[in-house]
Write a protein that binds this DNA or RNA. Sequence first.
DNA 1: AAACCATTGACAAGCAGTTTCAAGTCGGTA
DNA 2: TACCGACTTGAAACTGCTTGTCAATGGTTT
Lengths: 140, 140
Amino acid sequence: MENIELFHKFLAEKKMKWTPERKAILEEVFASHDHFEADDLLFRLKKKDIRVSRATIYRTLELLVNSQLVRKISFGEEHTHYEHTYGHKHHDHLVCLKCGSVLEFSNPTIEEIQERVCTDYDFTPDSHCLQIFGYCTKCR
Amino acid sequence: MENIELFHKFLAEKKMKWTPERKAILEEVFASHDHFEADDLLFRLKKKDIRVSRATIYRTLELLVNSQLVRKISFGEEHTHYEHTYGHKHHDHLVCLKCGSVLEFSNPTIEEIQERVCTDYDFTPDSHCLQIFGYCTKCR
DNA sequence: AAACCATTGACAAGCAGTTTCAAGTCGGTA
DNA sequence: TACCGACTTGAAACTGCTTGTCAATGGTTT
């Protein structure tokens, strides 16, 4: 599991500790490929009888975001969602306004145009997020 | 002021009332072309000695969003921002991670590709939002 | 002008997320 | 292996935004 090593290294560099809680959270985050929110994680861990406080979940998620293993995404007005990025190529989302399902897509041309827009505006891009809201096949 | 009439009509259709508070909020929203958040509005109104409660601000903003005169946008992790849409063509945003400044841009090709992506995924688009985070000329 | 019912403001409540701090744990060192 | 200091943790309090409650107010219709 390379992501464990990456996180371990990230922590070591910052003189932070490798604790059972951090390990459990990391493993749970990478156990599924879905988008999740902080409370989902808490719930999934609780189901496995792993007790980690809400505060620690948030603290660790922040570390994971800083270490680039996870990124935040926001779907509409709701609270923060996360997805892991390691071994996952960049993509954007189609979000169904009715059932809430999320489709992923990636399109190199859009990325290219974004680069061009940034050049035009003398802007140095760091990241971006594109969500298209609408209705999926079932909900139309 | 056509937006006043539009809102008036929207309210009439829903058998809602045209009140001084709603009028004041509408006017203030359209008085500037910047993005704003609920508290900005409250502050701007207070400066003009127009007293409207926070609750009414939120309630009225929701109405404005429903009437399509205003839309919500989210810049990164912060709280909800709004911008008015009437007489404003669709655009996306370049958000500076350091100074928080926001540049607007619009690009027809990106819109086109989005349409195509939606067709490919059998998805009916309703709206979308694209934010590019990075650093502006000054902050680079 | 009366009556009806939407709207308002003040305040309480809800909610995601953060901070505080005492108690506990990790990990380098002797 | 035991020690010790620094880092972490959990619980609970707290924050800041947003929404709900409810009595009082005020449009609108007749």
